[in-house]
Nucleic acid binder design. Structure first.
Length: 287
DNA sequence: CAACCGCCCTGGGAGC
DNA sequence: TGCTCCCAGGGCGGTT
C-alpha cells in the first residue's frame, strides 16, 4: 500500500519523464473511485495543458499544469490547473506506450503529447483523481486542513508537546491523524514508535518534550530511510514501468507478530487501535 | 470540538 | 476444486 515514501518515489520517478509534455486526451474507463470521476470536467481542466511540475502534499500527488497554447503571459495565470492524484490502498501510475493493452483496473488514462499514456490503475478503488484551477488549491477541501509535512521544516516537537497536552488519546492514532501530521500511515507509525521506544498506547498528553523530540526524529528517519530504499513493496506497489516494485524496506515490527523482536528477542505483540493492527515490542517500547 | 466508529472496495489467503 | 470468511487500510461522514 502506498504510503508517503511510495508516493514520493512515484513523484521522483515520474517527474523527469513527463515534465514539459502536454495532455492531449483523457479516457475514463471506470469512474467509480473514492469519489466518482467526472470525465467531462477532467477533460475540460486537463486538455492541451502542459505539465510544468509534480509536487507532493501528504500522500497527494499534485501535477502543475499550464495552458500549452497560451502565448500571452498574463493569460497563463488564469489557465493554470492542478491535477490531484491519490493512490489510496492499491493505486498505481503506469507510464506506457499507447499500444500496450489496457490492464484490468486501468480506470483513467491520460494521453501525453509524446504518444505515451499515464494510466491510473486501482483494483480497490480507494484512490482519487480530480483536477481544479490552481487558485482553488489553498482552500481545497482535501488540502486545507492538513497538518505539517513530517519531512518539512515546520514539524516541531515543542509544538506537538503543546497541542497534545491533556489529551489521553493513544500516541499512535495521534501521529496517524492527518490534521496533526501528514503522511504517517499504519506501517510507518508502528515502525517509528518502535524506533523511538514508545508504547503505541501511551496517552499522547503524557509524552515529555524529549520523548516528543525522539518521536519526531524517529518518524523522519523511518520515512527518509524508506524513501532512500525506494518505498516498501508489500503487496500492491509497482514502479512506473509497471514491473514489480522496489524491494521491501526492512520492517522491524510491522506484520511480525509472534516473531522475536530484532532488539531483545521477545515476541512482537499485536493489538488493535482504531480498527487498525498495531505491532510493537512490549519490552522495548514503554509508556 | 476531540475522539471514535463504520464504511467504502477488491484480492488474497486460510480453512473446510 | 471451489466455496465462505476474514483481513488489509486512508480518509470521510456521522455520532457521541
Amino acid at each position: 500500500m502506498p504510503e508517503l515514501p511510495e508516493v514520493e518515489t512515484v513523484r521522483r520517478t515520474l517527474r523527469p519523464h513527463v515534465l514539459g509534455l502536454s495532455l492531449t486526451g483523457v479516457d475514463v474507463h471506470d469512474g467509480r473511485l473514492r469519489t466518482p470521476v467526472v470525465a467531462r470536467s477532467l477533460r475540460h481542466m486537463l486538455k492541451e495543458r502542459q505539465i510544468v511540475d509534480i509536487r507532493r502534499r501528504a500522500k497527494y500527488l499534485l501535477v502543475d499544469l499550464r495552458s500549452a497554447d497560451s502565448k500571452a503571459e498574463n493569460d497563463s495565470q488564469q489557465c493554470d490547473a492542478v491535477l490531484l492524484l491519490h493512490l489510496g490502498m492499491s493505486g498505481k501510475v503506469g507510464l506506457v506506450e499507447a499500444e500496450v493493452p489496457l490492464k484490468k483496473h486501468d480506470h483513467v488514462v491520460l494521453h501525453l503529447s509524446d504518444g505515451r499514456q499515464l494510466r491510473f490503475n486501482d483494483p480497490r478503488r480507494f484512490g482519487r483523481i480530480e483536477a481544479f484551477a490552481a487558485r482553488e488549491e489553498a482552500g481545497h477541501v482535501l488540502l486545507r486542513d492538513l497538518g505539517p509535512e513530517p519531512l518539512g521544516p515546520s514539524v516541531d516537537a515543542d509544538e506537538f508537546h503543546r497541542i497534545s497536552r491533556g489529551s489521553k488519546r493513544p500516541v499512535k492514532t495521534f501521529i496517524m491523524d492527518a490534521k496533526r501530521i501528514v503522511g504517517v500511515g499504519n506501517i510507518y507509525a508502528c515502525e517509528a514508535l518502535f524506533r523511538a521506544g514508545i508504547h503505541p498506547s501511551t496517552p499522547v498528553g503524557r509524552l515529555s518534550t524529549p520523548r516528543w523530540r525522539g518521536l519526531v526524529s524517529a518518524i523522519r528517519e523511518t520515512l527518509t530511510a524508506a524513501i532512500e530504499q525506494g518505498g516498501t513493496t508489500l503487496r500492491d506497489f509497482r514502479n512506473i514501468s509497471g514491473e514489480a516494485g522496489y524491494f521491501a524496506v526492512e520492517l522491524q515490527v510491522y506484520g511480525r507478530q509472534g516473531e522475536p523482536c530484532v532488539r531483545c528477542k521477545k515476541p512482537v505483540r499485536q493489538l488493535r487501535q482504531g480498527g487498525r493492527s498495531t505491532f510493537y515490542c512490549a519490552s522495548c517500547q514503554r509508556r
